[in-house]
Design a binder for these strands. Sequence first.
DNA 1: GCCAACGTTGGC
DNA 2: GCCAACGTTGGC
Length: 139
Amino acid sequence: MAYWLFKSEPNTWSWDDQVAKGAAGEQWDGVRNYLARNNMKAMKLGDFGLFCHSVNEKRIVGVVEVCSEAHPDTTTDDPRWECIDVRAVAPFPRPVSLAEIKAEPRLSELALVRQSRLSVVPVTEAEWRVICEMGGYQG
DNA sequence: GCCAACGTTGGC
DNA sequence: GCCAACGTTGGC
């Protein structure tokens, strides 16, 4: 079991859009970065992820689950780019902002903080627990 | 295969 | 809203 963090611009793909897809989920497409893609290729069915809004609204808003492992990204003909599918699990009772994450010493090593431009990053189990606790989410 | 140029992203 | 940094692309 591994944990991840997915970042998306709410204008392009928001938590509400994700929820609207229901249990079927939707592919996490459009990633054109090797590191982010490699992270996705490492994902297994049933892995959990944090859904994070970027840009103006920088905060973690909910939990998603990987419901399909890596497959070609249908938004491009380029075979290098693959993606996975995720489905919404539950919203955070209390969204966790990026500022709160940066203020939390236990999250100082979070990949998101260290590589802020990467849209798909790994989260350790310890970090996962801290973030869920901050968001009032009972995993 | 290297390197310059461009586009995108995030910080301030 | 500007600017710096990063990563990807394309030309040589």
